[in-house]
Structure formats: structure tokens, C-alpha cells
């Protein structure tokens, strides 16, 4: 079994118009910049993108929006230090937004990956984000029914990987990445280093390879926040 691919371009092959794409990361930590930019080069349209945020500056998801790839964002916090890409299109009515509380977003993805079509959470009860949703009472408290979230593809940034797709992450760059690995039809991962089988202690594997389809080594990957602070633009 060998899930390695040779390049970021090869890794994002098959992502076509109208696809739903989960993209890992929280702000700049854990954002798979090289995979995102390879997808922009490929240029599919009408994508639904699932991420905690909605892009920053003129790189990564913001550059996807600038390039007109994104029809809809599903996220919890579409703000950043430089949110112009999303904000301008949103206020112009050119991009849809499904706003989801952060913990509900995480659990919907987890549920999608675990084969659980719906669950109940106290989060959002009595607020406008629960309007139209099924409410049920358990042990005297009210809960909101939320549906699973799945995707055609997930773009993931991890630290170490092996050819089976076993993964570790770097510090708080873990965030949504392990969840999204489980919830996509095709999970595509960029790692800083591909190590031989056995090179990751099985006790330290965070994402087991069963959840991963493609692994590409991007040595010394870009860090989104560092690019933002340098004023980088991807075009």
C-alpha cells in the first residue's frame, strides 16, 4: 500500500466544479497552503468550502475566493486580520455563508466521519442559529438537532506521514485537521516529511492511515500567518 503522490498538483487531481472541500486549519495554523494554491492553479468553480474561517489576506482560502472558485463558505468565524476577500464578496451577495458555532462545526464533521447522521447539542438553543432546527428535550434541558457534515475532498496539513497515511501534527496546527481526515470521500494530505513505515511510533499516530487517501511531501511548508505578515499575494 502506497498513498504517496509526487506533487501538490497531482495530489489535488480530480477536484472538479461544484465539489465540497474541507480545508484544515484554524486561522493560519494548520492551513495547507501548498495544496490550496495547487487547487487554485487547477481552477475548479462553484466549490463549497468548509473551514473554521473564511480566509485572510490574499493567499490560501482568501486567494481561492479572489480567484472566484468559491460559491459557499461553511465556517464559524469569517473574520481575520484582513478579511477583504470574503467580506467584499459576501456584502456584494456573491458568496453564500452558512455560519456554524465552532464546537457544532467540529462535531458535525466528527459525526460525518463516524457515520452519525445527526446529534443533539445545547449550543445555539434559543438563538437565531437554531431557527428552523429540530429541538428536543432530554432530562429537562433543550437541545438542538444538528446534521453531519461530509465532503468530497479534504485538504489537510500534517507534520509527519508515512506511505500508509499515518499522520502526526505540529502543535496547535492539529485543530480541525484530524476530524476532516475522517469526513471526506478523498482525503489529501501534505506533510513536512514522509518517513519510512515504523518511523512514527504507533503510540504517537494521531490520524491512522485508514482515513487518508493521498500523501504528498512538502518540505518546509509555508505558514499562513508568516505569509500574511509578509504581505504575500497568490495570483
Amino acid at each position: 500500500m502506497d498513498k504517496q503522490v509526487a506533487s501538490a498538483a497531482e495530489a489535488v487531481a480530480g477536484i472538479g466544479d461544484g465539489a465540497t472541500v474541507m480545508i484544515g486549519g484554524f486561522g493560519g495554523s494548520g492551513a495547507p497552503i501548498e495544496l490550496i494554491h495547487a487547487l487554485i492553479d487547477k481552477g475548479p468553480k462553484g466549490l463549497t468550502v468548509i473551514n473554521n474561517n473564511a480566509g485572510n489576506g490574499r493567499i490560501g482560502i482568501a486567494a481561492m475566493i479572489d480567484a472566484g472558485l468559491v460559491k459557499k463558505m461553511i465556517c464559524s468565524f469569517p473574520r481575520s486580520s484582513d478579511p477583504r476577500a470574503f467580506t467584499d464578496r459576501y456584502l456584494a451577495g456573491e458568496i453564500e455563508l452558512e455560519l456554524v458555532p465552532q464546537g457544532t462545526l467540529a462535531e458535525r464533521i466528527r459525526a460525518g466521519g463516524a457515520g452519525i447522521p445527526a446529534f443533539y447539542t445545547p449550543t445555539g438553543f434559543g438563538t437565531e442559529l437554531a431557527e428552523g432546527k429540530v429541538i428536543a428535550e432530554f432530562d429537562g434541558r433543550s437541545y438542538v438537532q444538528e446534521r453531519w457534515l461530509k465532503a468530497d475532498f479534504a485538504l489537510i496539513k500534517a507534520h509527519l506521514g508515512d506511505r500508509h497515511g499515518n499522520l502526526t501534527y505540529n502543535k496547535a496546527a492539529r485543530n480541525f485537521n484530524p476530524l476532516m481526515c475522517t469526513a471526506a470521500e478523498t482525503t489529501i494530505v501534505q506533510v513536512s516529511e514522509i518517513v519510512p513505515l515504523g518511523g512514527i511510533d504507533p503510540e504517537h499516530v494521531v490520524t491512522p492511515g485508514i482515513f487518508v487517501d493521498r500523501v504528498v511531501e512538502i518540505a518546509d511548508p509555508a505558514q499562513e500567518e508568516v505569509l500574511i505578515r509578509a504581505g504575500a499575494v497568490y495570483a
Binding site: S76, P83, T87, P122, L129
Partner: peptide, 14 residues
């Protein structure tokens, strides 16, 4: 404007 909720709705429960 652009609505943004983050984790606030989760934090108030639990």
C-alpha cells in the same frame, strides 16, 4: 455586516 460566532455559543453551555 458579516456575522461571526466562533466558539461563544458553545462556551456558554457546559
Amino acid at each position: 455586516g458579516v456575522p461571526a460566532v466562533g466558539g461563544a455559543m458553545d462556551l456558554v453551555h457546559g
